[in-house]
Design a binder for these strands. Sequence first.
DNA 1: CTGTTAGCGCGTTCAG
DNA 2: CTGAACGCGCTAACAG
Lengths: 345, 345
Amino acid sequence: MKEKVNITIHDLAKELDLSPSTISRALKDHPSIGAQTRANVQKLAKLRGYRPNIMAVNLRNQQSKTIGVLISWINRPFFSNLISGIEEAAREKGYNVIISQTTDDLKIEKDNAKTLYDIRICGLITSISIETLEYPHFGQFYRSNTPVIFVDRVPGDFQGQKVVIDNYQAGYDATTHLIEQGCTRLAHLGGSLKQGLYKERLRGFRQALEDHNLVLNPNYILNGKSLSREESLVLATKLFEDGQGPDGIFGANDMAGVCAILVAKKYGKTVPDDVAVIGFNDDPICEIVDPPLSSMYHPAREMGRICVKRILDSLNKNNQSDDLSILTTELVPRKSTLRIVEIES
Amino acid sequence: MKEKVNITIHDLAKELDLSPSTISRALKDHPSIGAQTRANVQKLAKLRGYRPNIMAVNLRNQQSKTIGVLISWINRPFFSNLISGIEEAAREKGYNVIISQTTDDLKIEKDNAKTLYDIRICGLITSISIETLEYPHFGQFYRSNTPVIFVDRVPGDFQGQKVVIDNYQAGYDATTHLIEQGCTRLAHLGGSLKQGLYKERLRGFRQALEDHNLVLNPNYILNGKSLSREESLVLATKLFEDGQGPDGIFGANDMAGVCAILVAKKYGKTVPDDVAVIGFNDDPICEIVDPPLSSMYHPAREMGRICVKRILDSLNKNNQSDDLSILTTELVPRKSTLRIVEIES
DNA sequence: CTGTTAGCGCGTTCAG
DNA sequence: CTGAACGCGCTAACAG
């Protein structure tokens, strides 16, 4: 006798001489089922290895227990950590995670959003593409009461649930750290100002200077597009073309920070004594570069977990009081900024 | 009049005064449908924005157009690149990708495999956990004719489709490169020998030495468990405890290579002149460390694409002649090994 | 070439 | 407390 692979509630019903609906109810602890019946059913279900056919459940409920993640690139430290956190939290709660990358292309973002909608994801977590300035492609989710959580790179001019860090404060803290180390000629290697995120980091930078009565050299504020390695090297080189160069550099990501160190060394500068450098994100490369790069820790994994929690809360109508989760970043000081040697007592 | 959000084939059927099955067939270019009818149907479908309800299709076909990916950690350069390639290739073909991480825990691997099975993935791509030495949890897929592709970290003693690199050859090439640079006291920082992958890299290392008549110092072969930063630093330090140390180090991953450089420098060695170092994978950290780390390029993204191709081929019964795809790695020489300065002509 | 019918497996009214 | 019946949306076998 071949063992049956996929048990259905009908199989259990036949075996116990009950109706399928009774099985269905017993299995999900419906109140109107007798304790004895319920026990019998659950016992047999376990014995036979019954598992509900998820596709049937989905069709019936017009909804799949699947969280969609729509981001630009999976293979970037921040996103891969974010996804890792999302996956972990989702699976704990019995949800699946489906991934979709846009390669920072708005057209693909729209297409993929539609696809995710079609498979009836129960919630969407997204970090919008660089090009995204309009949001009608998210309307379909709102119309069908599917929660949408924007994370990290979020729309500034669009209402909705958002999970972010305080980029202004982080920029302020990073810059203040440089100032406390004695830097006075400060520079900033920033990202695209189309993104609120980089605008805020720059704003924090400016405010820190102002609060400490430092003069801002406009030549020392450079904004790139991608802050890739190539671009960052070019930008960093510009900082030193004036012969003197800055004595403190705040890079808006770690690659910018790393490149600032590399270029500074090429110009014969000592890091951190001639020029101190701090990055942003606390990616693994911080510990690889020489000297190790100070950075602002970005809680990517935790952000992922919070996004999942927000989705589940929304589905259960446990609406949070606030639409905004702001996570704190933390200064991770390393040799690239630590000029003042503390004396052990 | 409120616009209907989810059009079904019944809606179209009513509007065109046809039967649902005709619509269904017309939409998928079934041969037995009149050209005129088909044109009408397709036109109206587009006009009304019809999109098939995927959950119904899945239930009907007992299969979801979803590829499952079961790996240890999403947030590792190799895996995030692999997934990126998988996602890209899958979406081009209209497949979704569902991700599941095991955190290198066999129990979780089993659970998640079952979950993926339950949602009726049409194919599985997996890189087994470090602990996995038995494979009954993959049996359910084979029994239901769901293709399983093992990638990178594959079972040595289990038959099935595999996508790998030639770790023996890569190890041989990396080592030969060191030898060609004049290294004679060679060391290897390897990973867990439970994994065929690391065994092969070591075998290549040994063979290269033998082929060049070099003596192998057994103290210079160290194998770790995870080759994490911490572990690699410890291992690398052991190499230099004899006072002299090796003059060439092959690290089985880039972190090991990077740590070898860091430790060598700490011992006052010059890289590459006193000791040349090569890593494995060509992760971003290679270009960050000073001097930049030579490495063996590992085609993660392409491996992902090939895995997807294999799944689709299996589903279409275009069975490949061979169960094994072996991709080539490429030497990426950088300053950490380049002792001989080539003179430009 | 097209229509009718019958499920895929489950959840949920509505009756007993 | 339990069962019968229906339908989620689609596809495929069977008729015509």
